[in-house]
Structures are given as structure tokens and as C-alpha cells.
Amino acid sequence: MSPDTWHILSVFVAFVAVLFVCGIYSILVTRNLLRTVIGIEILIKGVTLLLIVVGYITNQTGLTQSLVITIIVIEVVVMVIAGGIALSMFRNIDSIDTRNLTKLKG
């Protein structure tokens, strides 16, 4: 791998790691269900960006773009379902705080 390619990959990997840290930290720390979904969204964005960079470096943008399109479709469905779950939770217990979900156990 040429030094230029290594440089591009290193810079992008560093920023993708930042996205992962933000997403994981957000999921771990927050108690709001919609913010948890936003954390998952940030993690998915990191994955898509990394795929695109790897495709650019290996000159396989066709394959990586098709994978990213698949990921985006799945992402939308996940977000819609998660939003629906948050809303139905709000309808039932009048809150989207995950600490109030204790009745799910057992």
C-alpha cells in the first residue's frame, strides 16, 4: 500500500473511530429511547463511511456502494420500527425513559 493510501485510510479510520465512540457512549449513557436510536444511527453512519473509504482505496466502489445502499434500506426500517416502539411506549406509560421499562422483565 502506498504512503498516500495509508494516510487516507488512517485519517478516515480515526474519524470513523470517533463516530463509533460517540454512538456507543450515547447508547450507554442516555436514558431516552429516541436518543438511543440516534446513537444506533451514528454507529451505522460510521460503518457506511468506512465501507465507502475501503471501496475507494481498493477501487471497488461498485460493490461497496451496493452494500451501503442495502445498509441504508435496513437502517430506515430499523428507525421506523424503533420510532414506532418509542411512540407505543409513550402511549402506554406516558414516558420514553428507559428506566420506566421495568415491567418488561419476567
Binding site: M1, S10, A17, V18, V54, I57
Partner: peptide, 18 residues
Amino acid sequence: FGVIAGFFGIPNDFKPIY
């Protein structure tokens, strides 16, 4: 994590599979 991933994330002898 940004600094660690930037400096140590990709080894110098890394070869992508084409």
C-alpha cells in the same frame, strides 16, 4: 480513541485485498 485509531489502527504493512 481518534488519536489511537489514527496512529495504530492501520499497520504500515497492511495490504488491502483487491
